[in-house]
């Protein structure tokens, strides 16, 4: 592959329509490995938002989540030739993302920082940035919605790290138990037990606020 061909990395992640749009992930991966560099744009555009949301819900810091998504794509790019093509590409990508998110949480627990989200929780209402919401909704509904949104975000953030990863993968990313086991490197029994505990914790945290 020449550098000139690689220069086609233009419009990365923003390609409106590519010749790979209708292809399966595995076919796009094969196209990239065969030297069609624009196939990587397709993988980025398919996964950037999904991976960002997964990492963001796991680490709770948007800026850092974006850095980690960049790192995921760098690793994918660097090691795609070693990817076992009998496996699902999405599982591999999520495995990399999950490992990076876990490392981030581990590093953070060693070097604790006060996160913006932590400060934000204690803000007065006047300090909140202005948000334009649907004016057709009643004010109490809007307040309730916003309150519930913050509540669920905080409830997820309160889950222990290894429960949170499994919970987010299942409830937000819709992964199967088998996929979660592969992504998190646990056996099926561990995944089930972690998910059950995470659901119980989540319900226990949120239940008193819903009455």
């Amino acid at each position: 592959m020449t550098l000139a061909v690689r220069d086609d990395l233009r419009n990365l992640g923003h390609a409106p329509s590519t010749p790979f749009a209708g292809l399966e992930d595995a076919q796009v991966v094969q196209a990239f490995l065969a030297g069609r560099d624009r196939a990587f744009d397709e993988l980025v555009s398919r996964y950037q938002v999904r991976l960002l949301n997964f990492i963001y819900r796991t680490v709770g810091d948007r800026e850092r989540a974006e850095d980690l998504v960049q790192e995921v794509f760098i690793r994918i790019y660097r090691h795609l030739h070693r990817f076992d093509q009998t496996k699902k590409f999405s599982t591999w990508a999520y495995t990399i993302a999950s490992n990076l998110a876990k490392n981030e949480l581990r590093n953070r627990s060693r070097n604790p920082l006060v996160l913006f989200q932590t400060i934000k929780r204690h803000w007065e209402a006047d300090h909140r940035p202005l948000q334009f919401e649907d004016s057709s909704s009643r004010p109490d509904d809007m307040f309730r919605k916003r309150h519930l949104r913050e509540l669920v975000e905080q409830s997820v953030a309160q889950l222990p790290e290894h429960h949170r990863v499994v919970f987010v993968l299942r409830e937000l990313e819709g992964k199967t138990y088998e996929e979660i086991a592969e992504i998190s490197g646990c056996n099926l029994g561990t995944v089930k037990s972690r998910l059950n505990r995470a659901r119980n914790n989540f319900a226990s945290i949120i239940a008193p606020h819903l009455d």
């Binding site: 990395l9 519930l148 239940a207 819903l210």
Partner: peptide
């Protein structure tokens, strides 16, 4: 409670990548 919480969680707005994401990734690649 769990069902309501999960519904609220799934209704959370999706986070999108920033404008600089693509160029920054391209540069790193």
């Amino acid at each position: 409670a769990l069902r309501a919480g999960l519904d609220a969680l799934r209704a959370l707005p999706s986070v999108g990548v920033s404008r600089g994401f693509g160029p920054r990734l391209r540069q790193r690649l």
